[in-house]
Amino acid sequence: MLILIVEDDRDLSANMAAYLEMHDMECDFAYNGAAALQLCEDNHYDLIILDIMMPKMDGYTVCQTLQDRGVDTPVIILTACDDDQEQLRGFSAGADDYVSKPCSLPILKARIDAIKKRQEQSSRKITIQDMVIDLTARTVERQGLPIKLSPTAFKLLSYLAQRSPNVISREELQKHLWPEKDVKASNFNVHVHAIRTALDKPFDTPLLHTMIGTGLAIRGGHDE
């Protein structure tokens, strides 16, 4: 389980990581909100522990931005502000749980375990031919082999797979990936190429199909 700890107190971050790593969890670190968003853009995390009062961007803004971008990684807010209004604000921003400082590390681990258990119980999978996408674990396999994709490429592939075998226009796909901004076609093409390279190139039968002038589709052999 890979956890992102977003906390500007480096000693506290190190203490949490040392305890969690004793229980077979891996940890990455961000010491401000802007760095956290960049790490979430570049990596997939199973859970985020998020402080509220941080430089550059507070935790509420980070949490809301992740939600707006379609990142559904569970978030545990960690803060010294423990009144009801602050907790409600955190939940409204998309947090899954709330732990007050100073926190008990065993209690923090118990909260993490509870979220992990809920994820396992609600696991959703899509199977198309020899590809399996686990939407909860955010993993992709083909012929039993793991397919490594960036968070954005995974989001694109999942959207196509959920609508397979339908053809989805590039405009709709770009709006799904970046709802709050316009992006260059070249940026979109980078992620399409990444999917095609990882998902199709090593195998005999392609699953990602480009329909000239129409859009993209994920299709198994029986859908041709």
Rank of each mutant, 00 (worst) to 15 (best):
V75I: 12
D113L: 14
P165H: 00
I168T: 02
L105G: 11
S123Q: 06
A137S: 09
L149G: 11
D82P: 08
A185K: 14
S122T: 05
K117L: 03
E86N: 06
R138V: 07
S104D: 09
K109M: 14
A137V: 02
E171S: 14
C63I: 02
L108I: 14
S104M: 13
I76E: 00
A80P: 02
D83C: 05
S104R: 13
I76S: 05
D83Q: 06
C103N: 11
T139Y: 02
C81H: 15
S158M: 10
Q85E: 10
K155F: 02
T152K: 15
A80D: 06
E172P: 00
E141F: 07
P179G: 08
Q64I: 00
P165M: 04
Q85G: 07
A114Q: 06
Q119A: 03
M131T: 03
T152G: 04
C63W: 01
I126D: 00
C103E: 10
I76A: 01
E86W: 03
R170N: 07
A185Q: 08
V190E: 08
T139A: 00
T79W: 03
F188M: 07
S186K: 05
G94Q: 02
A153V: 03
S92L: 07
V190W: 11
P151H: 13
K181Y: 12
Q121S: 15
S164T: 03
R138K: 14
K201M: 03
P151C: 11
A185E: 09
K148M: 10
L135I: 05
T79E: 03
Q121P: 01
T197F: 04
E120W: 06
H191V: 11
V99H: 12
R89L: 03
V167N: 10
I77F: 15
W178E: 10
K116I: 14
R111M: 11
R118V: 09
Q121A: 14
